[in-house]
Design a protein around this nucleic acid. Structure first.
Lengths: 336, 336
DNA sequence: AGAGGCGTGCAAAACGTTTTGCAAGAACAA
DNA sequence: TTGTTCTTGCAAAACGTTTTGCACGCCTCT
């Protein structure tokens, strides 16, 4: 009692396999009566077309890969877990509605990706000269990056608007009263850091502010940030605002501030980029930006599909929105 | 300039496709010299066997599904995000080392899973009469559950040892000085809650403690927990210890305690089950249990593979380990 | 009646592997 | 010599679809 094939069904229905195929795919007209008979019979016999055969015939795998640009253990670790998972969940759902499956691509030093094959791959926040991009490009697999690819404007990407995001936060900090704002980004060369740094430089110049910036290993976590932020703050006691690009580094910075006896937000205002669990669980809560990652992921899937169809349609990323919280609230106005 | 097929390679190497196949699969001996020539030529021509064809021929999809037992939007939401992602990351990596891909199975009211096909599926903490289990069972797809399946001892599963976990926490709270411990679990009927409740009942009886237990919607998040925990605490002022099974509910409870002017841990000791970001970011930090989810995920993948091979090997889950933190520390001893 | 068009259906050729049974030659033993 | 076994290789048959070109019958215009 094997799984019934299209041929079994054809025999049972007294038609040819061709007709069955058309009845399901709708690629050609089949008589409504015939079709109804076919689907009823299919249901009864438990027939479902073999994905494997369809894939072989069509040359499509029906699968999209989601690759994080850093070792998966780290990406799944506390630091970037939320970021990646938000994207994964939304992308998986969008993919499913397009009859595609979403596959996780773990990266680890000794992993061999040759056994995977995808119709396209989404790469999350690649770094400059990202190995994953090189790998998939060499195999001619369509790529869409979430966040622009540094130095590779030719690679399709969903813009995270990191420059605008930075501007949003800096303007807000300034409005809230900060006059000397510092910047902490990651030392990895991701587009978001680079854009942020560029905007920061401009902003500092505009406001006649001394740029005080620092790069930390984004995987260093809270302990690294705590130590380094403390030294930055003692070295530059005039700092009364801080933009920290990575949430884990931001909460680490928060601890440093508290250790130094500096109050947030009255002495120093603090803001971060990604509005994840960390920003919300921090006390005081962190001002952050809603990047609309669900929309981003959706757009990335659409972009992959478009690319598979040969269209090189550009998909715009959603506009980031600032979420102002306790950590940067203006002390002059409101509040009693 | 198409992708070279096994036939192209065979022609170029002057052998038959059979030999190529054997050279790669190792299913039969081929002369070392011939093999070397083949692999060199393959490399040069950029030949790689078509996954689709292999799958069709072998009947295996090379893919394992990972399904969360609740709508994906929720599972990926703050509450269970960490739990699921930890498993996903580890499972994806393990799967890859076994030449399998890991696919996310999003669940949403209107999603149609029929376009997916897997060699097996891992289901995370299913509820009683879980729809996903019924779905995959009907399609004869091997299932491994993470956490036992309520009322279905016949379904293969990796034991999360929820009873032991509960015992660990309750014993600790008692040792730390709590004499009237309350319990908050989820109202969904997952095995972990059921085991916890059973162990709690036994524990209460052993210690002559009045059982004070409550079930909350696990998706209610912190706000729900805050409200309900507050009412529980005012109703039972004698409570000096709380075991809250879900981390989001635990942090909500923490807020309730603070609102009520109860100090943690001196007035009430608090502990939760899953040691995720939430437990660690909470202030004071939450006592929790390391469930070794990476090992659990690894075991789940192994179990799926074993089941595919017909072995019904039972895979033991790792032993949970308590991680004692500030929220439940004994006040009598040590510490200054 | 003939020409054109439409609706419906079929046969057969892919798609690129793996597997099975067979064969030719070499090595080896009796 | 004859038989046995081992090694290496091949041809051909699957695996279950989708697509293409063709054909038949029926309708509708001229």
């Amino acid at each position: 009692m094997r799984k019934p094939t299209i041929i079994d069904l054809a025999k049972a229905a007294g038609v040819s396999p061709t007709t069955i195929s058309h009845a399901f795919s709708g690629r050609r007209k089949v008589d409504p009566g015939t079709r109804d008979r076919i689907v009823a019979l299919a249901e009864e016999m438990g027939y479902r077309p073999s994905k494997a055969a369809q894939r072989l015939r069509s040359g499509r795998t029906g699968t999209i890969g989601l690759a994080s640009s850093m070792p998966f253990a780290v990406a799944a670790g506390p630091s970037r877990l939320g970021f990646l998972m938000e994207i994964a969940a939304s992308a998986a759902l969008t993919a499913l509605t397009r009859d595609m499956a979403l596959c996780l691509v773990p990266t680890s030093p000794d992993s061999n990706l040759d056994n995977l094959d995808f119709d396209g791959v989404i790469i999350v926040e690649p770094v400059r000269d990202e190995a994953l991009i090189q790998y998939f490009e060499a195999r001619h697999i369509p790529i869409v990056s979430i966040g622009k690819v540094p130095a590779r404007p030719d690679v399709a990407s969903i813009d995270l608007h990191s420059g605008r995001t930075a501007r949003l936060l800096l303007d807000h900090l300034h409005e809230a009263g900060s006059r000397q704002i510092g910047l902490i980004t990651g030392e990895q060369r991701r587009n978001s850091y680079e854009e942020t740094e560029a905007v920061y430089a401009t902003f500092a110049a505009e406001h006649g502010m001394t740029p005080i910036a620092m790069r930390l290993d984004e995987n260093g976590g809270e302990t690294l940030a705590e130590r380094e932020a403390a030294s930055l703050l003692t070295q530059h006691p005039q700092l009364d605002g801080l933009l920290v690009s990575v949430d884990a580094l931001a909460t680490g910075t928060m601890t440093a501030l508290q250790r130094l006896g500096l109050a947030v937000p009255s002495d120093v205002r603090l803001a971060t980029r990604y509005d994840g669990m960390r920003a919300q669980l921090s006390r005081p809560q962190l001002t952050a930006v809603d990047l609309h990652l669900d929309d981003v992921a959706r757009a990335a899937v659409e972009a992959i599909l478009a690319q598979m169809d040969g269209e090189d349609r550009v998909v715009a990323g959603p506009t980031p929105e600032i979420i102002i919280r306790e950590s940067s609230r203006s002390q002059t106005g409101g509040g009693f």
